[in-house]
Design a protein around this nucleic acid. Structure first.
Lengths: 245, 245
DNA sequence: CGGCCCCTTGAACTACATCAACGGGGGTGG
DNA sequence: CCACCCCCGTTGATGTAGTTCAAGGGGCCG
């Protein structure tokens, strides 16, 4: 397990996915992390309307961005896994137009916006990689939107599982084709934009066909080929390949 | 009308929405625009799978990003109006995971990625504003996703009109509560993620209630209050306010 | 003048939502 | 230690927003 990896390492590893880092750059990343704290399940990490002075790096656990309608309907617009720079965009946008909540118990590190700003002044290459991170978030959002508009609930659920699988694999959180997906059916409903009842039935469809097993928080991919086929999954948008930036 | 505004001015104006630019910065922006050309209606500006060496700034006309499913279903994930930096993210992402098409005849300017890279080296403040532009694109995507998941077709259409109205107003393309929306009902269907038949019926609903008129490409807002109310529109996410970045 | 795109309308169908109810497990209080 | 309760997953029945199919009319362009 990766329990003991520290915040700096996560950040270096994430940015290192986009391009090779020099030793000096890794050093610079060491400096920017201010503190490191725990958040309990279901607690908000960043709330709508606030003006954060720090951005949050997720070290352990899962969290979600979401929007609420006055009538209580909720839409989750992103799920974040360890290593994700959860609200990097708050550096650019100043005022939050949505909230971010911990889905499980989380450990997070805070990076002051001041440090990010200095990074754009003194380490343009690192700044480009941070910018890239924002762009990748956008690419994922486009895929979700694409699916929400034009894919069926079954296809979307399959796609979601494909994406999570690949992303978790990228940070070493997959073992033997299985991974942790610590979300309730109600939360998954808010991710997929459907009702909890429908999530239940769709999940049974995928399980019944022997494509996945899902008990508790543990998902096992039984038939990756078939899952990708249902989802029409193409991982290009995750930008996992490394290159000069 | 704004027919004769040149590319540099558009760019300075857009970035100036996020923060005040110095004269020197405006000067720097002058240097980066390489050429300026026309694209005819329905022509692709950037195609999926390519690796652009330039990013495109839209000067005149409307264009759309879209994704295609193998069966021909299409989802538009963004519409761009004059002044938008249409594929700024291609600088970060390298390979396009979607295409961009001209909805109307367009005039566009190309900015070499090399110049953007130099900007991150020599003009960190401008680089932050470009980054902000990427972040605002993301914020708009979140709103679309939110709507797609949790709003009805009527609400989404109302929201879309609100957004377009505010954005066009921001670049001076609104006169007397009316603006140009040069999209067919089929294209609007691909934006809203519904069928063209349903677009037709929803549009009649909005017209029937006297909330908008829409003939040809011209939309007139007859009852802004009511439109916003249906859409539950809150323009915060467009980040139109200026501040130090 | 012909053809094609675009808008419009009706009728039948389906993927989903909503409502309602029940069982099991894990945590909490008595 | 037991009782309770609440959350979570599950299932059935019914309702509805939106799709699909089919057809016709108007305007614009070749």
């Amino acid at each position: 397990m990766l329990m003991s990896i520290n915040a700096t390492t996560w950040l270096a590893r994430r940015l290192g996915e986009y391009d090779v880092l020099t030793e000096e750059e890794k050093c610079a990343l060491e400096q920017i992390i201010e503190h490191d704290h725990r958040v309990s399940e279901n607690q908000d990490i960043v709330v709508e309307g606030s003006r954060p002075s720090h951005s949050i790096l997720l070290i352990e656990g899962f969290c979600a961005r979401y929007n609420l309608l006055p009538d209580g309907k909720r839409q989750i617009t992103a799920i974040h896994i360890p290593g994700d720079f959860v609200d990097l965009h708050s550096f650019c946008l100043k005022r939050m137009d949505h909230s971010i909540a911990a889905i499980t118990r989380c450990r997070v590190a805070a990076i002051p916006h001041r440090a990010l700003r200095e990074m754009t002044e003194n380490h343009p290459h690192l700044a480009r990689l941070l910018w890239t991170s924002t762009a990748v978030d956008g690419a994922i959002l486009r895929q979700w939107l694409f699916g929400m508009g034009r894919r069926s609930a079954l296809e979307r659920m399959a796609h979601q599982i494909c994406e999570l699988f690949v992303r978790l694999k990228g940070v070493g959180l997959v073992e033997d084709e299985s991974f942790q997906m610590p979300v309730t059916q109600a939360q998954l409903a808010d991710i997929l934009g459907i009702s909890t009842v429908h999530v239940n039935r769709i999940a049974q469809e995928l399980r019944g066909q022997g494509i996945i097993t899902w008990r508790g928080a543990t998902v096992v991919i039984e038939d990756w080929e078939r899952l990708c086929q249902i989802a029409e999954f193409n991982p290009t948008y995750l930008n996992l390949q490394n290159g000069p930036r």
